[in-house]
Design a protein around this nucleic acid. Structure first.
Lengths: 136, 136
DNA sequence: TATTGTTATACTCTATAACTATA
DNA sequence: TATAGTTATAGAGTATAACAATA
């Protein structure tokens, strides 16, 4: 079939993102985590006592949608909330949360390395800077 | 906030795809088209009498999900269906569909050019080949 | 006055299963 | 037996509006 779409960087960007996200989802699924769960856990690990609102801003997730996300992680005993002041809650990882986050990081780093390995060497180092220019 | 995620190509890929898709969606929205609508119209334009199933395979869209998509385009008088044989329907653009597809292509090509322009010159020509390696 | 956490809700997109008719 | 078109439906993800309490 005649298909000019793959010649378009924007189209290929979307297709590549979808394909790689699906592959990573399978691996994180073995830890019962979605990508967004792993992102949240990683950010909490690096920023103890961060608030849900700050996390949402960093990840471009609406405050309202953080609620069920964090509730699931808390139910599983992966994170804990403690009051910072009268209206804010600080988030932190439990011991179990630390362990699972470490495992998730291992999965992600392995996956990212494989991802880069798939890119022909002459293009490899250009991928991240090029992508950065498109969203940061 | 400490955030190691943007260092990961896979994460940046997802964020870049989401950001650029949102921008293109705004422009195609002025034509009352979603990205997937434009993709379908473009493929029909280049492949007259293509079937819904073949389109779905090319775009990785389930047969079942093609139905409401094509129904909307047909209701708007953009595409027409005519029997190829007893079980297959060939799709084609109406005159109005041709016109809107041409307009959509103009929007998309302009957008893609702007996208590439945002990428620093040393990285620009590496983006598409790198992305291709990740999904094709 | 702006922000935090929260609830409720609606909308879109996608996935799955099943059915009929035809190649 | 495989494929095309279709229907119905369920789930996930996301967006919006509104509210009370606090900074």
């Amino acid at each position: 079939m005649d298909d000019p779409l793959p010649r378009l960087p924007g189209y290929s960007l979307r297709r590549a993102a979808h394909a790689t996200a699906a592959q990573l989802a399978v691996r994180l699924g073995e830890l019962d985590l979605r990508q967004v769960d792993a992102s949240v856990l990683i950010l909490i690990q690096g920023n103890p006592q961060v608030t849900a609102s700050a996390l949402g801003r960093q990840l471009d997730i609406q405050r309202a949608n953080m609620v069920p996300l964090l509730a699931r992680l808390e139910e599983r005993g992966l994170i804990a909330k403690e009051p910072i002041d009268g209206k804010s809650l600080g988030l932190s990882l439990t011991a179990e949360g630390e362990q699972l986050t470490t495992a998730a990081l291992q999965v992600i780093e392995t996956f990212e390395a494989e991802l880069l390995a798939r890119v022909p060497a002459p293009h490899r180092d250009h991928l991240l800077p090029a992508l950065d220019a498109l969203w940061r």
